[in-house]
Design a protein around this nucleic acid. Structure first.
Lengths: 140, 140
DNA sequence: TTAAATGCAAACTATTTGCACGTAA
DNA sequence: TTACGTGCAAATAGTTTGCATTTAA
């Protein structure tokens, strides 16, 4: 479900992380909060500049970089050569439609039966993430 | 464990897939079969040309593309912006060391407790893959 | 013999960087 | 006021493509 954040709340969150609030950063973060489709930089750029041009590509990159550093957004790397972004930083997994490419979040609890203490070769696990591929509802 | 394939066996496998066997393709596939470190194109290129130059970058790309098409190798996408390749096409998972970046294969059976029929939103799962992050033995 | 692969260089895409100018605090 | 962010354009990295030449079968 999309987080219902108003402008004031968003500003508050950013301020709490010590971020200087510029129109560009605000637009990028607000945009990511309002959508669930794990957009690419290009998509964020288009969306943010839809009405009036507000941010350059370089600024979107820089906004995303700093938002990632303070852990307000995270990267999602799936099967292409493009980085996608997600304002949902809670642990969760991903479903990718092998037909249309749409990405859906899967609740963390979907896969919680692992015993990570049992890995081979003395590997010490810290976290894990599951990517499921298949067909989304509209592509079946 | 590295597959112990001799030249004749490798040729046989490639021929079975209907591939024309060129020195470049052979070198790329043999190289991938002999290593387990999920190399990038750059690394394959260096390794294959270590003694005498045998393949151009374009040929390595094209060899990998066709080997992927016939399912003799697969791409591995992890946390960077680089594609890595793997001659192990059996289902398995990956462990990535968050310190040195080394990649280890994890046996499929490590995570086999999923009920994929129970996904939300009418999603129809076909496959899944787990990526574990942590510290490898030498980085602990 | 010939359809298909190679190698080079140029093109392309995603991302990063340098620097003059602008602005949030 | 000023340290920090923005925007542009140029640089870089990874990958793809076009085309003339070579080669596996």
């Amino acid at each position: 479900m999309p987080k219902s954040s108003n402008a004031t709340e968003i500003r508050e969150v950013m301020k709490n992380e010590g971020l200087r609030i510029t129109p560009q950063r605000f637009a990028v973060y607000a945009n990511l909060l309002r959508r669930e489709d794990h957009p690419t930089v290009e998509q964020i750029l288009e969306d943010v500049n839809a009405d009036i041009p507000i941010a350059s590509k370089a600024s979107v990159y820089s906004a995303l970089t700093i938002l990632r550093e303070v852990n307000l957004v995270r990267e999602v790397l799936l099967d292409e050569g493009v980085t996608r972004y997600d304002a949902n930083v809670n642990p969760h997994h991903h479903f990718v439609c092998s037909d249309c490419g749409a990405i859906h979040d899967l609740a963390w609890e979907t896969f919680n039966c692992f015993d990570l203490s049992q890995l081979s070769d003395g590997l010490q696990a810290e976290s894990y993430e599951v990517t499921v591929k298949g067909l989304c509802q509209s592509c079946q």
